[in-house]
Computed example of a mutant assay.
Amino acid sequence: MGGSPDGFWWREEGAEGLRVAFTGAEAGNLALNVGDDSAAVTGRRRRLEERMGVRPGALRFMNQVHSARVGTVEAGDAPIDGSEELDGLLCADAGVPLAVLVADCLPVLFAARAPGGGWITAAAHAGRRGLLGGILANTVAGLEAAGGTGLQAWIGPSICGRCYEVPAAMQAEACGQLPELAAETSWGTPALDLAAGAAAELGRLDVRVHRVAGCTREDPGLFSYRRDSGCGRFAGLVWTGQGAR
Rank of each mutant, 00 (worst) to 15 (best):
G2P: 05
G3E: 10
P5L: 14
G7K: 07
W9H: 13
W10Q: 03
R11K: 11
E12T: 10
G14H: 15
A15C: 11
E16M: 12
E16K: 15
L18M: 08
L18I: 10
F22V: 03
G24C: 02
G24M: 00
E26S: 12
G28S: 11
G28A: 07
L30V: 05
G35F: 12
G35A: 06
D36N: 05
D37W: 04
S38Y: 08
A39R: 14
A39I: 09
G43K: 06
R44G: 06
R44E: 04
R45P: 02
R47T: 10
L48V: 01
E50T: 12
E50I: 04
R51M: 09
R55A: 13
R55T: 07
A58P: 06
A58C: 03
R60H: 05
F61P: 00
F61G: 02
V65L: 11
V65S: 14
V65M: 13
A68N: 09
R69Q: 10
G71V: 02
G71F: 11
T72W: 15
V73P: 04
V73T: 12
D77W: 13
D81M: 08
D81V: 05
G82I: 01
E84Y: 11
E85D: 10
L86C: 01
L90R: 07
P97E: 08
L98F: 09
L101C: 06
L101H: 06
A103T: 12
R113T: 11
A114R: 05
G118E: 00
W119P: 08
T121N: 07
T121A: 14
A123H: 05
H125S: 05
A126K: 00
G127K: 03
G127R: 03
R129E: 15
L131D: 11
L132I: 01
L132R: 12
G133W: 07
I135N: 00
L136S: 04
N138V: 01
N138E: 14
V140D: 00
E144R: 15
A146T: 11
T149F: 04
L151G: 08
L151T: 08
A153K: 05
W154K: 04
P157H: 03
S158P: 03
I159H: 03
C160S: 15
C160F: 05
G161H: 01
V166M: 06
A168T: 08
A168V: 14
A168S: 13
M170W: 11
M170I: 15
E173V: 13
C175L: 10
G176F: 13
G176W: 09
P179H: 07
E180M: 09
E180W: 04
L181A: 02
L181I: 01
A183E: 00
A183T: 02
T185D: 04
W187C: 02
W187V: 05
G188W: 04
A195K: 14
G197P: 02
A198T: 00
A198M: 00
A199G: 06
A200T: 02
E201C: 11
G203Q: 08
R204N: 03
R204A: 12
V209P: 05
H210Y: 15
G214W: 10
G214N: 12
C215W: 03
R217D: 13
R217F: 11
R217S: 01
R226V: 08
R227V: 09
R227K: 14
D228E: 15
S229V: 09
S229R: 15
G230E: 08
C231P: 02
G232K: 04
F234M: 15
L237I: 02
V238K: 06
T240P: 07
Q242P: 00
G243Y: 04
A244P: 02
R245N: 10
R245L: 14
